[in-house]
């Protein structure tokens, strides 16, 4: 055995390095957020929220259509993914204990959570955009829904399994049907956890870019329907940041600020108000 002094020295070294790593994490967060806030704030004004993008080289202009576009895309995605995800989650939690099929669904859903989002974009392009003949907001929403679905499924399963068995038995004993027991009693009991999970999933897809590149594309105009190319904050940010114009760079920083603040606000607020952390860790205590 090494001497006590040597062991203590090694220990101290590792503890120091580890603390420095944590410090590094915080410094990076402050650095990224600091830059986004300082450079983004310069671009935020009334026009930013109310005007359409200006043509290349022209001064001014805003991202009103992209802001609305991101809201429409995200909400539509949630409308598709949340009901489907809750139903699948109910199956996993209520009927799928121990079943091989359910284990396979769980495993695939977990993989899908971190599947490369650009490939989701390619897939939706091939099954929706190409057959329909045009890029559309709907296709963009479907890509986002595919990314949301596994998160909603797994959260639903976990939150439902936290609800006590007695509640189910009581509802059934009072003569309610199984679906009624699920929707009127159990889902309600798990409401906070479900809302947390859904909000975190929404925040996550609201910042997605890759799946929208080949689906909703982009547009400098107001949308008149969901079946046409639709601007989104993220794709606009991408195009503007890659452009050679300083004005557009500034707008891109504004967009980055808006996206970051929205996503982080939803994330922090949801966690604080509902006081629950979604994801595996919750169930594992």
């Amino acid at each position: 055995m090494k001497s006590l002094a040597a062991r203590r020295a090694a220990n101290l070294a590792v503890l120091t390095v580890s603390s420095l790593a944590a410090l590094f994490g915080i410094v990076m967060l402050a650095w990224v957020l600091g830059d986004v806030i300082v450079r983004g704030a310069a671009a935020i004004n009334w026009d930013f929220f109310t005007s359409l993008p200006a043509p290349p080289g022209m001064k001014g202009g805003g991202l009103a259509n992209a802001i609305v576009g991101t809201l429409i895309l995200t909400l539509t995605a949630a409308l598709i993914a949340v009901p489907a995800g809750i139903m699948a989650g109910i199956y996993l939690s209520e009927f799928g204990r121990g079943a091989l099929f359910a284990a396979a669904v769980r495993w695939l859903a977990d993989i899908l959570v971190s599947a490369p989002s650009i490939v989701v974009g390619v897939f939706v392009y091939l099954v929706l955009v190409r057959p329909m003949g045009n890029f559309s907001g709907l296709a963009g929403a479907v890509s986002l829904a595919i990314l949301m679905l596994p998160v909603v499924i797994r959260t639903t399963e976990e939150m439902l399994s936290l609800v006590g068995r007695e509640l189910r038995e009581a509802a059934l004993a009072l003569g309610s049907s199984y679906p009624r027991m699920m929707f009127a009693v159990i889902l309600r009991a798990a409401r906070n956890g479900l809302v947390t999970g859904v909000m975190l999933a929404v925040a996550r897809v609201a910042g997605e870019t890759a799946p929208l590149l080949f689906t909703s594309l982009n547009s400098p105009y107001w949308m008149s329907g969901i079946n046409e190319p639709m601007a989104s904050l993220t794709v606009t940010l991408f195009n503007y940041a890659m452009s050679p114009y300083d004005d557009w760079h500034s707008l891109a920083w504004g967009a980055a600020l808006l996206i970051t603040v929205s996503v982080l606000t939803v994330t922090v607020f949801t966690r604080m108000v509902l006081g629950i952390r979604a994801g595996r860790r919750q169930a594992n205590g």
């Binding site: 994490g25 967060l29 996550r204 609201a206 910042g207 991408f238 996206i259 970051t260 996503v263």
Partner: peptide
């Protein structure tokens, strides 16, 4: 840090 969108 994990919640910041990758495009940012």
């Amino acid at each position: 840090l994990a919640a910041v969108p990758s495009i940012v």
